[in-house]
Design a protein around this nucleic acid. Sequence first.
RNA 1: GGCCCUAUCGUCUAACGGUUAGGACAUCGCCUUUUCAAGGCGGUAAUCAGAGUUCGAUUCUCUGUAGGGUCACCA
Length: 431
Amino acid sequence: MKANIVTRFAPSPTGLLHAGNYRTAVFSYLFARQNGGKFILRIEDTDRERSKPEYEANILESLAWLGLDFDEKYRQSENAPVHREYLEKMIASGHAYISKETPVKEGDRSEVIRFKNPNKVVTFSDLIRGEISFDTTELKDFVIAKSLDEPVFHLAVVVDDFTEGMTHIIRGEDHISNTPRQILIQEAIGAPRPIYAHLPLVLAPDRSKLSKRKGALALTEYRDRGYLPQTLLNFMAMLGWNPGTEEEVFTLDQLIEKFDLAKVQKSGAIFNDEKLLWYNREHLKKLSLSELTNIATERIPDLAQLNSNQLKILVPVIFERLSTLAELDEMREGGEWDYLFTAPAVSKELLGETKYLAETIALLENISADKFVPEKIKDAIWDFATEKGRKEVLWPMRVALTGKEKSPDPFTVAAILGKEETKTRLLAKLD
RNA sequence: GGCCCUAUCGUCUAACGGUUAGGACAUCGCCUUUUCAAGGCGGUAAUCAGAGUUCGAUUCUCUGUAGGGUCACCA
């Protein structure tokens, strides 16, 4: 496609990064990478009051977690000398002027720098929306700096995009109305016009722009709640875009390959947590046994007591029923798997009738210890259980082994416990 | 309010002007299952309204309506 593409993600470090923000990072990144272009991170910290180092750290942490690597990083405040230079040039050329003001609110200056508005109609072409026109007359002579050393958003953005060589500006729809005045500044400083693509907004359930106030969770919060980075990446990419096929689950590399900016939706989309959960389950399913085992033993350290044969049986069973990794933490806290290590207390009431237990034990006795795996155990007991009533045979067996109302099936549990321990626990319930 | 953007199931979305308007999530039902999940199968559910163009509009045009964005010495 086009050579030398340069895009950027330009967040202001005034809050934790959430879906309303990082979605533009995802789209810009995909576009840059699929075209072999550059992806630049620019921290827009010209608002000294609200910018905080911890928020900048959060932005970096979030991007790293998602795996969105950038080629260059700038901090807008560090570009102040260049902003000053352009301001001076604009004043010298008559494109801007120092204006005397009557302060209306706290912090207002009595002197600011305003842009000399040529009052014309600006028309630009948006990659997603087509042509958009504005009459800039209503903008008046807008403020571009509080002083030569304190540029305001529009000036800083235009100068930086120019000096950093931006070819494509991919940002949220809420910037559409900022575009005409930025184009005016571009023309004043002789900068080429980049190609614009205004993304639809990510919406809160009430269809207004998603924001922290609207309950947007920080990306790092999703991480802490046990979502995989590929889940958020995949979900975000599919919010407002689709490949035109019925496939939905993609890795980052597949997204880079398939993404198409021109196919991005025009209308905003609600961030749907239930679908996100589904995506997480899908991505969990794609992990290998060893990856799952590492995750499980990290979150539930007790599981490290099990040998690899036991883990091979247990791990898939654990992940079969969970949607987020945080559920592993709940298991740890709730002692969910304690019965694997210590014989559980078994309530007589829960256990119920044990009239077939002796025969069950006898059937298990026929399996050699090294063949004590779920399939063999099931084979040994199944016909008997079917004949006598599965519930009558299998319920007491499972409860005697686990002490719990809910657990994996008795064959799986018995296999993990091993032949000896299984026999010991069942014999203990024989009366 | 001015300006700008948008409009298909509850949600995310598909459909060269010609489809029984498709899929996914959610929901409901059935099957399977000792339990809880998972899984399998099936159902309910949408083109904002009105004109126009056309043999034929979800699709093109206009108007209306609705929603959203933006109108800072924030970004």
